[in-house]
Nucleic acid binder design. Structure first.
Length: 811
RNA sequence: GCCGAAGUGGUGGAAUUGGCAGACGCGCCGGACUCAAAAUCCGGUGAUGGCGACAUCGUGCGGGUUCAAGUCCCGCCUUCGGCACCA
């Protein structure tokens, strides 16, 4: 078969006949299969994209053949940093490079022959899409879920620009190697923390990989404890969050994040120079560095003291970079004897270590450090109370005195969405001298991203220098106003695209709730595990927020989720331009065809694991497909002779039904490599039968071959379509039903099982299918090989596991 | 550093979730067909020892639980993903 031309032929026919058009009248059988859309940064799709889209398309086709009305759209997450960086280097406008890349990728995706319904394509950089991204911003804003506050950005003082984390290498700017500083800017945030608890609870209701749920749980990071208020000698107050209120009697110092607003106010003149120097140092460290538990602790005394509310102790106030301003209250109480980091800090700076909890069993009480136990040495009513109860008792006691309260804290932070970049969706807010911050009215959307903008770094957001963009009138008072010069994080665009797809051309609404509430949630979402915490959490947040606004009637966007593994370069490293190890599918597709290439991807790797690319065995896939074709041709050449079902036919019938069963189960579970292995076994059995010869019951043989073509159809769609036509089948093979296993054919009257003596394999026995344990035991003990192996030994116990094995324990 | 995974023949990977380790491929070896080669079809293939039936060892390393461990528990090593501005 000329695979290449066969593929072209069927792709044309599929397109002409609109085979993959979603039929809205069959909405009740809808099945929404979604692959994470691609980012058109590199000019072309690489093997990794195929690995995501090819097998998932096979899954979609499988569901289609199982009676589902499959909706499988495709689009592009088209805004983002790389296009802008490329523009700075090459002078090619991000819009031009992006649209060109998209055109190339569309061509590649079409050559793949996937069953995408292109009528619903989305490009997030087009005004007809980002108009509605801005609309969603406004809805969040109106509902109090968008607000502004100061937050640090990476600042390169030499390039005079904000850097992405990716552009910071070892604390320095990747371009000029200047040390990067954190600099505060007023920026927009989405209040995802308001949904922290529901985002956590909802995980129990969805069919996602356990590890992904675990990552989200840890990311949300719920912990319960108390907030305790400390008062400074100056009269200023601040709160600390702690999960160990039982140790509050042991506070020997308090430590604020260097960014804490109180720091400048309380620092004494004598300490000012040291504090300022330290703050500058801290602005050079990344959060990952600051959170390292092995890094040596650093800090500076502010010169101020505060009072421990539980015992009146006067303790020094320090600043230290292991305290993050973004977590909790940005301040912690230092309890050196009962927290490892505090212990390290106290050791380093020679602060008091005060033991107030002893272990319940009295052990380790001579050590300076202890985790949990009983409160002691405080001279209060709490002595003797174990830490678990002590925590609550002490916070409640403080609550009565207005000095604290029980508090659930989340590690999750609000989502910073402002980007000081050009290539993104503009933020639909204007600033008026009279009215302040004013939302752009919905009728004025989209706030169009201007084309002619200078994006060379000049210390401001690129849009800030574009006067025609910046200058506008205030929608409230009609006076002069300035637009927000920042654009939105691209994660905002990708947090709702699955809502847009089913109603992609609606120019009145972001989506019609009538349609969306029927089409969503997504039934199967497939994409990389690297999105576990960010994209997948943001999308859940948007869904819940839009639900609370009344637009949606479901709680979770993605009912079921699968992560494909990563295809690494042949060198075992992640594919990247800089390593030069990118595998392009195009060469393989033009040589072997799309079907062979995707079948190879499915068969050669464990789908959720991935692994290094290797083309070894690529040819063997073509050989297998030719082997399939030969046996199909053989069946076509036969007359429809019929004889009764002999042992051979029964055996083949068993394999056929076993194959149908296993292939269906494995495909449902995204275990494509084993599904294909079972088909290969089936083909091997068909050849054995063919050698018999198969003419005697050609009708049965033909049936088996028809099943083979249907079984293969989701995996090699073009070839299956061609074989179906050759066999005289009607168009399309994808309108036919997937074979269903006949359970009766799988019933056997006897089966083989293994017999072990002292856990070593000694024999195989055949037992009737309905044999009870006693019968099995008797058959096993009467086996000659078993008798040999147990000779002269005492049989202590016989363990019979039906369908598995027998283990005879002897001494 | 913290969170989440993975480690199985020469090789890609299987293993019904505690029950015959190595399915199915690749590679290699052999046979059939052929004047010959290719292609194809059939068979073999974890390691060590033995002519042999068979025996011993074997799932990153070290311990443990169990009649039984790739799978569970404890402690390590290595590799990969994420850590909030790559997406």
């Amino acid at each position: 078969m000329d695979f290449i031309n066969v593929e072209k032929k069927w792709q044309k026919k599929w397109e002409e006949s609109k085979l993959y058009s979603f039929d809205k009248s069959k909405m009740k059988d809808k099945y929404y299969v979604l692959e994470m859309f691609s980012y058109p940064s590199g000019a072309k799709l690489h093997a990794g994209h195929w690995y995501n889209y090819g097998p998932t398309d096979s899954y979609a086709r499988f569901m289609r053949m199982n009676g589902k009305e499959v909706f499988q759209p495709m689009g592009f997450d088209a805004f983002g940093l790389p296009a802008e960086n490329y523009a700075i280097k090459s002078g090619i406008h991000p819009q031009d490079s992006t649209l060109k890349n998209i055109a190339t990728m569309e061509g590649q995706l079409k050559a793949m022959g996937a069953s995408f319904d292109w009528d619903y394509e989305i490009k997030t950089c087009m005004p007809d899409y980002y108009k509605w991204t801005q609309w969603i911003f406004l809805q969040l804003y109106k509902n109090g879920l968008a607000y502004r506050k100061e937050a640090p950005v990476n600042w390169c003082p030499s390039c005079n620009t904000v850097l992405a984390n990716e552009q910071v290498v070892d604390g320095a700017c990747e371009r000029c190697h200047t040390t990067v500083l954190r600099k505060n800017l007023t920026q927009w945030f989405f209040k995802i923390t308001q949904y922290a608890e529901e985002l956590l609870q909802g995980l129990d209701t969805i069919d996602w990989p356990e590890k992904t749920k675990a990552m989200q749980r840890n990311w949300i990071g719920k912990s319960s404890g108390g907030e305790i208020e400390f008062e400074l000698e100056s009269g200023d107050k601040f709160k600390v969050f702690t999960t160990r209120a039982d140790t509050v009697f042991g506070v020997s110092y308090v430590i604020l994040a260097p960014e804490h607003p109180l720091v400048d106010k309380i620092t004494t003149d004598a300490q000012k120079a040291a504090v300022d120097a330290y703050k500058l140092e801290c602005s050079k460290a990344s959060e990952i560095e600051r959170l390292s538990t092995t890094r040596e602790k650093t800090g500076v005394f502010t010169g101020a003291y505060c009072i421990n509310p539980v015992n009146g102790d006067k303790v020094p106030v320090w600043i230290g970079d292991y305290v993050l301003y973004s977590y909790g209250t940005g301040a912690v109480m230092g309890v050196a004897a009962h927290d490892e980091r505090d212990y390290d800090f106290a050791k380093k700076f020679d602060l008091q270590i005060k033991r107030v909890v002893k272990s319940a069993d009295g052990k380790n009480d001579d050590l300076p450090f202890c985790d949990y136990g009983v409160i002691c040495n405080t001279g209060t009513q709490f002595d003797g109370i174990t830490s678990q109860e002590g925590k609550i008792a002490i916070v409640k006691w403080l609550e009565e005195k207005n000095q604290g309260q029980l508090k659930t804290n989340y590690r999750l932070r609000d989502w910073l969405i402002s980007r000081q970049r050009y290539w993104g969706a503009p933020i639909p807010i204007v600033y008026c001298d009279k009215c302040g911050e004013v939302a752009v009215p919905e009728k004025d959307l989209p706030v169009q991203l201007p084309y002619n903008v200078e994006f060379k770094p000049n210390g401001k957001s690129p849009l800030a220098s574009c006067e025609e963009f910046m200058n506008t009138t205030c929608p409230k008072c009609g006076g002069k106003a300035r637009r927000d010069p920042d654009t939105m994080d691209t994660f905002v665009c990708s947090s709702w695209y699955f809502l847009r797809y089913p109603d992609a051309h609606n120019d009145k609404m972001a989506f019609d709730p009538e349609i969306i509430n029927k089409m969503l949630p997504v039934d199967k979402y497939v994409g990389g595990a690297e999105h576990a915490c960010m994209h997948l959490l943001y999308a859940r947040f948007f869904t819940k927020a839009l639900r609370d606004m009344g637009y949606l009637k479901f709680d979770e966007p993605f009912k079921s989720l699968v992560h494909q593994g990563t295809i690494l370069g042949p060198d075992g490293f992640k594919m990247s331009k800089s390593r030069g190890n990118i595998i392009s599918p195009d060469d393989y597709v033009s040589k072997f065809g799309s079907d062979a290439f995707r079948l190879y991807l499915m068969f050669g790797f464990s789908y959720i694991e991935g692994g290094p690319w290797s083309a070894t065995g690529m040819e063997s896939i073509t050989k297998f497909l030719e082997r399939v074709e030969r046996i199909v041709d053989k069946s076509i050449s036969l007359n429809n002779s019929v004889t009764k079902m002999d042992a051979e036919e029964k055996a083949l019938n068993y394999t056929r039904n076993y194959t149908i069963k296993r292939v269906s189960e494995d495909t449902k579970a995204f275990s494509f490599n084993t599904a294909i292995a079972r088909i290969m076994e089936y083909v091997n059995d068909l050849y054995k039968y063919d050698n018999l010869p198969c003419e005697k019951n050609a009708k049965f043989f033909k049936e088996c071959i028809e099943n083979l073509v249907l079984l293969l159809a989701p995996f090699v769609p073009h070839i299956a379509e061609e074989l179906n036509e050759k066999m005289g089948g009607t168009y399309s093979v994808f309108d036919k039903a997937y074979p269903v296993c006949d359970e009766k054919a799988l019933v056997k009257d006897e089966y083989e099982l293994a017999v072990q003596v002292n856990s070593r394999m000694k024999a195989k026995i055949v037992v009737p299918s309905d044999a009870d344990n006693k019968t099995i035991e008797d058959i096993a003990l009467n086996n000659d090989l078993v008798k040999n192996a147990t000779q002269g030994l005492n049989i202590v116990k016989v363990i019979v596991i039906p369908k598995r094995l027998v283990n005879i324990v002897c001494k």
